[in-house]
Design a protein around this nucleic acid. Sequence first.
DNA 1: CCTACCGATCGGTAGG
DNA 2: CCTACCGATCGGTAGG
Lengths: 196, 196
Amino acid sequence: MAGIKIKKLSKRKAQIYEEAQRLFREKGYKATTMRDLARAVGVEAASLYSHIKSKEDILQYICFKMADEFFAAQEDIKDLKMRPDEKLKLAIKAHVGVITDNASAAAVFLHEWRHLSEPYLNDFKLMRRRYENIFAEIIEDGMDQWVFRHLDTKFYVTVLFSSLNWVYDWYQPDGKFDPEEIADRLSFILLNGLNQ
Amino acid sequence: MAGIKIKKLSKRKAQIYEEAQRLFREKGYKATTMRDLARAVGVEAASLYSHIKSKEDILQYICFKMADEFFAAQEDIKDLKMRPDEKLKLAIKAHVGVITDNASAAAVFLHEWRHLSEPYLNDFKLMRRRYENIFAEIIEDGMDQWVFRHLDTKFYVTVLFSSLNWVYDWYQPDGKFDPEEIADRLSFILLNGLNQ
DNA sequence: CCTACCGATCGGTAGG
DNA sequence: CCTACCGATCGGTAGG
């Protein structure tokens, strides 16, 4: 495959995104200035603009890159034939895995997307709904097969994602639980509850 | 009680907080300017400062006022003697009630607190931990009495609050579910799970 | 990748 | 509650 160009970020560009993820997570998108970012990267603010078009450009990249990661993780399992409860556990594991692999980017994806301007903002919302529907379908399959209780699907999906999405805030690579175990415990609570 | 002064916000001050809650929720604290707020209130930006000391003053008021509301709601039930599962349901109902009564302020409380400066930031974190401990104690009582499964308490409490705290985002006063029913459905999922 | 700099806007103050 | 205004800082550009 000699001569084929691999679309890859330059080292500097990758570094800019990396620091931006960290800063946007830590201080928020609006509270992070291009001078903050420049300092973290080790260049002057004006120099950033030889690598990126604008501040929002960075936010767009982070948000839609993470969206791709989430969909890719579900793609691997979506056509598997198995019991809905087992499938939901796999979907949860896949989702949690993406978050733990990219905790800063996940935080930005989850909290800073509202600073996107149109039409990206609308694209983002539509994409998110499509993603949530992957989970809704597994759940409705489970209800149809009487594996799951007949709860309001939308309500349950919202509770589900609320529970999954704080993981970025909690997960520490060298902490008590690894990603696998976090996913298992979340699945257990969401499927079996706290009652003895 | 004639002559006794009731500590009460002036009409204008109450209006400023009201509009600030709405704007901070909608656009975020950093993205809301004092000129945005002034326009919403119907005065010039400089005039706001006869009623409030600074922008952060408003954020402090909203965050700590909400904290008071949450604690007050738990105060009513904390000494009741009853089964831990029933008590947890009451605590959930009280918490959800505060959120649905003050959806905008709740959103600010949940997402914008990190823009507080010290020492308020630290006070806020300590207060939040104290509040979470109210729930942790109910849960540990339930484990001791073998009403609840023996899960990691901190993990469970985090899942619990993640589930409860999106309610502000979802609740509509004229919507499908009233606050009572939202609390019941949340309790059911968290206590019994999705599995049939 | 830097120096130099831009117009716009920020939170807030002075003085009435 | 307003007019007038401040110093600081913002995202970003020109030109090399």
